[in-house]
Design a protein around this nucleic acid. Structure first.
Ligand SMILES: NC(=O)c1ccc[n+]([C@@H]2O[C@H](COP(=O)([O-])OP(=O)(O)OC[C@H]3O[C@@H](n4cnc5c(N)ncnc54)[C@H](O)[C@@H]3O)[C@@H](O)[C@H]2O)c1
Ligand SMILES: NC(=O)c1ccc[n+]([C@@H]2O[C@H](COP(=O)([O-])OP(=O)(O)OC[C@H]3O[C@@H](n4cnc5c(N)ncnc54)[C@H](O)[C@@H]3O)[C@@H](O)[C@H]2O)c1
Lengths: 219, 219
DNA sequence: CGATAGTCGTTAAAGATTTCACATACTTGG
DNA sequence: CCAAGTATGTGAAATCTTTAACGACTATCG
């Protein structure tokens, strides 16, 4: 739709949903205005970074005043396409998949898991968190134009399912399996690797002692 | 312990567990050697980046040959402290917490969830995934020197629990709640925000069309 | 044993992101 | 309506990260 703002840095883009959520909180609390400094304390992002981020979208604030919460919120709602709901499919209704289905991503969020698939006959036909679980054999026919998938199958099945998703026309996959899947270059895959996140935290604790310098999260 | 290699870039440090896992896979498959190019295809990280990453630790490979899998693996095992197990506590045995407890982080991994806490009387006293669930009121006394915590409580409880964890001497928190918690500067918090990851993926799909340029994951 | 192909480690360049710092312009209270 | 205070938006610098390119060295094959 808009082809103008293609030069927003990826780092900025990743922070937008975070800003959006906190602006929502402020709005709910009845706050009318907010400064980059206040927002900085809430989201733990440097205030200069916040101002820079916002400035990619133009002059959203007012000097000497800050930002109007309502205006900023409605601006980001449009920018993040919060008005239209993105339909999502989830593949693999196991431990992790069940947790996601039971969680209501719609709160503050424009994404909705509409359908789930699993290979386990006992799961198929049940409803988890209000979402029907279909058999994986019917993936292609039941996907119905959904373009985003959450992948929570065993890692051994990941590549096979990814191939089928791609053939079925998916454009984005949120991959929770430890497998690094290969897809055509026009399909976007984001990996969330929980075991690695935990290991990385442990590594940082041992090798990057925090203090004076190296502040990341502070009181 | 080692105070020499403090200058390893954070970006590199985050990739180490990933390398370690894939080296383990290769080792299991009986591979004796691997080149940065091969590894690159497996982990989807540019081969120059891999060589650069490894080079921070010295000359681990051999020109014209590549890397010896066994040697590299044992080197990273030491570097990542895979020999000693890191004990972890989990707070909040709900949807997400239960999924983690049922997952065995020990596979390829030096971290083990040893104890869990919840406020819900029905949960307390049960065992989930082989881990005892204790009452949150006993957090301080039962934590027993554990220094890493996974936080999967409702966001409204996050800051309160974090404060108690800090007082109890925790040094790292993996925070899955949408709340941005405040802790003293010597405590490390990593946020994993699943709703944001999903929103960000959707945003990227709409605003950063992949193709020729901008390749990230390809066949 | 020499030629060829392969691969590392690294220098240097490019690219991305964060942070500083301040001119500018708005707000507010008197 | 002015003066003091406040907070933006951004040029420039600093920092961090990735990528390209290639000299040096190894393995291997004929
Ligand atoms: N649970 C965790 O805490 C955790 C942590 C880190 C990584 N992971 C990764 O997330 C993934 C899911 O983990 P989990 O604990 O939920 O596993 P799980 O075994 O509980 O669930 C996997 C589900 O996928 C289904 N399945 C298997 N093959 C399938 C196929 N071909 N098509 C469709 N469905 C299929 C299974 O029936 C099962 O319901 C795994 O790859 C795991 O490594 C999980
Ligand atoms: N489930 C998901 O897919 C998902 C996705 C994104 C974010 N999250 C976030 O992760 C967190 C956990 O999500 P969930 O779905 O597992 O929620 P949940 O409600 O299923 O689980 C929360 C658990 O914490 C316990 N609890 C509540 N107050 C507590 C306290 N003071 N001390 C100890 N335990 C307490 C509850 O008894 C419950 O068992 C939430 O903050 C949620 O926003 C979850």
């Amino acid at each position: 739709m808009d082809i103008e703002q293609t030069k927003i840095p990826q780092a900025t883009a990743k922070r937008l949903p975070l800003y959006y959520r906190f602006l929502n909180n402020l709005h709910t609390q009845g706050k009318l205005r907010v400064s980059s400094k206040e927002l900085s304390e809430a989201v733990k992002v440097d205030s200069a970074t916040i101002r820079r981020d916002f400035s990619y979208f133009g002059a959203l604030g007012k000097k000497g005043y800050g930002y109007n919460v309502e205006y900023l919120l409605s601006f980001f709602r449009k920018t993040l396409d919060q008005d239209e709901t993105t339909r999502v499919a989830l593949i693999g209704v196991g431990n992790l998949g069940t947790a996601f289905l039971n969680y209501n991503f719609m709160k503050n969020n424009n994404t909705k898991i509409e359908i789930a698939f699993d290979a386990n006959e006992e799961r198929v036909g049940t409803e988890v968190g209000g979402v029907d679980v279909e058999h994986i054999d019917h993936l292609e026919e039941k996907l119905g134009g959904i373009s985003v998938a959450i992948l929570t199958v065993p890692s051994s099945a990941a590549q096979g399912i990814a191939d089928r998703l791609v053939k079925a026309g998916i454009s984005g996959i949120l991959n929770f399996t430890p497998a690094r899947i290969s897809v055509p270059s026009d399909v976007r895959v984001h990996h969330i690797d929980l075991a690695i996140e935990l290991q990385a935290l442990v590594y940082f604790l041992k090798h990057y002692p925090l203090d004076e310098e190296n502040i990341e999260e502070e009181e």
